[in-house]
Design a protein around this nucleic acid. Sequence first.
RNA 1: GUGAGCGUAGCUCAGUUGGUUAGAGCACCAGGUUGUGGCCCUGGGGGUCGUGGGUUCAAUUCCCAUCGCUCACCCCA
Length: 419
Amino acid sequence: MIKAITGTKDILPADISRWQYLEKLLRQTFQLFNYKEIRTPIFEETALFARSIGEETDIVSKEMYTFKDRSETSITLRPENTAGVVRSFIEQSLGAQQSLNKLYYIGPMFRQERPQAGRLRQFHQFGAEALGSTSPLLDAEMIQIAFHILKSLGLKNLIVKINSLGIPEVRENYKNVLRDYLKSKKEKLSEDSRKRFDTNILRIFDSKIEVDQQIMKDAPLLIDHLDEQSINDFTVVKNYLSKVGIPFEVDPALVRGLDYYTKTTFEIVSSSVGSQSALCGGGRYDLLVEELGGKPTPGVGFAAGMERILLACENEKSLNLINDSVDAYLIRIDPEIEMEVAKIASDLRRENLSCDYDYLNRSVKAQMREANKFNAKFVVFVGGDEYKLGELNVKNLSDGNQQLIKITDFEKLISLLKS
RNA sequence: GUGAGCGUAGCUCAGUUGGUUAGAGCACCAGGUUGUGGCCCUGGGGGUCGUGGGUUCAAUUCCCAUCGCUCACCCCA
């Protein structure tokens, strides 16, 4: 038997209503904040991701699905979508048509990691990017959109974490400060953290190992070494969040793994999904557009993991979706009038009434059970004595009432089924 | 890449201290009188006990390998 690739999942009809509910909520919410949908290809030239996300990051260095196509071009399945959106923004000159572009996307992403709760190799993200303004109100708006969506899904155990990484020069200076602090203590750090000392020193803050945390407890914080502008912007973000009633925590240890972030970063975590607790994350990236060859354009955005969000909903039982139903189920009483049943179904569908009937020649009883399973509002019996007299027997499945309707009186049938 | 746990019907799981035809619930199908559901009752189909090898008179049960799944580390959404 051929099985699905490790880390991929079929989303079956039984789960689809949750996905559709989420997608509908997303579109409504983004519409509310006036974001426009953009759909970019799921694969891009490999160089795009290397340049934007960062050559040294785990995502680029060991998690991408990269292959050569027949023309020997190195292609990568997108591991995230900011790079693709920014590429499109530059290539299509979106900045020339509009000074501020507020965009959102929904779609699959790919990373070759070991699967676990809330982590798949093909997974889905939605996200937003606002390109063209340095206003910290947009940073806060990103947080608000994400928070609004998660709250609308009924999620409870949420924590909004924010931090500021400052501008690059400041961050580089700070790294030196941190390096000085850690130099004497380096030998005491865990093996992983000693490695991070050279590759990505800020990440040592993230370590879950006791000794590391002990050492980092007294470490100088980036947030105390920020530039004037970053401090002011961060204050605006905090003030706005307070004004609109979104609780948050400043987390000086919140360091995002992608290289392109500047200034504000944030994350919303949930305690309802296992160890992969980040439902969404994002931040400002004022230098990315230029780095990818566009005109200098500030930007801010976020991405959220849809599987994780739905997992949190499931664990918190926060969604109570009603089952799908059909307006009518047609029941064939005599085997030989199959075609008449099909024709009636066709007529009903033309009137926008959802309906179905049996294709397996099953008994009336079996057809009734089927109607019940499909949550049919009405059942229409076709055949028997009443059919010979030119009538259809229509039964309301919720109260069991039946009534005869003349086949010629199609209007009456429609209005009954629509009632 | 590292570590741990688990693989018995479509699903959730029992079971065998190694021994005849491997079980339950749910789901599916058919019936419970001539054309009427949700509840209930009866019956039925469906399993190479993940795969390969070893030990043994005998393996679903013990051992080894392999594949897969799950969770955690790592990293991230």
